[in-house]
Structure formats: structure tokens, C-alpha cells
Design a protein around this nucleic acid. Structure first.
Lengths: 132, 132
DNA sequence: GTGGAACTTCACACCGGTGTCAATTGCAAG
DNA sequence: CTTGCAATTGACACCGGTGTGAAGTTCCAC
């Protein structure tokens, strides 16, 4: 199938498909004229890739992950588990960051609601020990 | 005080200070020679700005927020409360996104741990109804 | 054989806070 | 005076997935 068909079938723009190919996420044959010729199994793969992107993974990580997903089950458990665990950790760290940011805002809200000493926040124990 | 002093005192690079000024977050006089001359009260303000940046706010939002922080208490409650509430909502939305991404990864993990049908994820009810 | 759609590659833009380089200029100490 | 650091403005880079546009080629239906 050609890139336009794949784009329609998967809901991903041709631009993105070329990007995926450029980064090794998908592969294609070429017609004698130089056009991409995708196997129809690529539709599901592209959909999968989209979901992984939506899950916040970067192309490099997806690139590591995809071979594991295609390997026979007995081989993939180790590496893939590790990768996914890493990603989960990354997301959870991100979540903790956001929680800290939320705390900062809440602190700012309550602090300024109480007193007029807003311009000197570092005087009393600052709630911004986010140590980033 | 000059920009270098302010940078040292606040722990923010001169580059960032110029950026802040360029975006209206801080103001300065100019010496006859054209150098920035900051009021020493800027130190605390810059520190505050840094914390707001660290809390994930963008410069535009900080720009809206700062006047409220400097206004007398009776004026600021309304607008500021609203801005902060907006930011809290934004962060919470972000958090929900991350939670969904985490769900996606966990689903992927458990799914692939069970079966070899990894290449056809959209066949059975997909866990990726993230509707982003 | 031809018009036009679909495709090719190449390249720039975006977002936003910061690093960094370059060419000038201010200012203080020797 | 010179030397040298600090500051000035301006511009480009980054990151990363995607939009978009241009200029040129291929394919298909008529």
C-alpha cells in the first residue's frame, strides 16, 4: 500500500509516517518509481506507535520497544519489562513534579490570602523547596 | 544594582534576567551609559519568578500574576484566585494525562505478558481509549 | 499523450526558557 | 593612555513531533 493509503487507514499524517520511517519505526519497500510500498500489517503497527507516542514515549524508546513487541514471548519479557518499568518510573517522577508544582501554587494561594508580605517569600520557611 | 550583581544575588543567569525584562517580568532603570540598573528589591522578585517558572507557569501567566502579588490584598483576591485556580486545573489535567499514560503502559505490559498477539492490539477492546 | 493527483526530497516553522557566541561599548584600575 | 572585565544587543541552537510549502517526479485515467 502507498503512503496515502496507510495514512488514511491509520489516521496518521503522511508527514508523520515519513518521520517514523526516517527514525526506523517502520519500514517500506520501494516501487521502481521510488514510491513507498508498505505492507498492510503496518496499519496496526502505526496505530500502536501512535498509542505509544500518546503515552508520552519518545521515538527512541518506541524504537527499543517495538522489536520486543514483535519478538516471541519468551525472549521479550526481560528487556521489555525493564523498558516499561523505566517508562513508568519516568512518568511517576513527572507526576511527582506536578504534585510539587501544585503544592507550590496552593502554598502561594494560601500564603497571599493571609498576609500582605508577598514580596518577601524567602523570609519565612519557603514552600518552594522543590530542589529542582 | 547591575545585572551581574542581581544574577549573583538571585542565582539566575544574566541571560534569563534580560529575558525576564524583555517579557515585562522585571523592570530596570538605565545608567547614562546604557547599563541596566536594578532596584535591590528585584532580588526577591526574581526569586519569586524563578519559583513560578519552576511551578510550570509560563511567562505570560507569571506576567498576569505578578501585578496581583504586588497589589494591596483587597484588590488581588479576585483575579489572582482565578489565575491560580486556572493553573491548578491545568496541572491537574496534566496529571490526569500522565495517569492515563501510565494506564496505557500498564495495559501494554499486562497484555503482552499474557499473549503473543501483540501485533493486533486494536482487535480486542483497546486500552488506549485515551481520546487525546 | 496529457492533466492532475499522489508522491518524492528538502527545508523551515513552531514552542519557550536558556546557553552561548560575536561584535561593540562602558567603566574602573594600573 | 592601555588593559581587561562587565554589559550591551542580536542572533542562532536546542528539543521533538508535526504542519506546511516548494520544486520536481511518477502514476493512472481519460
Amino acid at each position: 500500500m502507498r503512503i496515502g493509503e496507510l495514512a488514511d487507514a491509520s489516521g496518521v499524517s503522511t508527514r508523520s509516517l515519513r518521520y517514523y520511517e526516517e527514525h526506523g519505526l517502520i519500514r517500506s519497500e520501494r516501487t521502481p518509481g521510488g514510491w513507498r510500498d508498505f505492507d498492510s500489517s503496518m496499519v496496526e503497527r502505526v496505530v500502536m506507535i501512535q498509542h505509544l507516542f500518546a503515552a508520552g514515549l519518545c521515538s527512541a524508546t518506541i524504537n527499543e520497544l517495538l522489536p520486543c513487541l514483535e519478538a516471541p514471548p519468551e525472549e521479550r519479557t526481560g528487556v521489555m519489562e525493564q523498558l516499561l518499568a523505566q517508562e513508568v518510573e519516568r512518568l511517576e517522577a513527572k507526576r511527582r513534579d506536578i504534585d510539587r508544582e501544585l503544592d507550590t501554587l496552593q502554598a502561594l494561594r494560601s500564603e497571599t490570602a493571609l498576609s500582605g508580605e508577598v514580596r518577601t517569600p524567602s523570609r519565612r520557611s519557603p514552600p518552594w523547596d522543590t530542589t529542582e
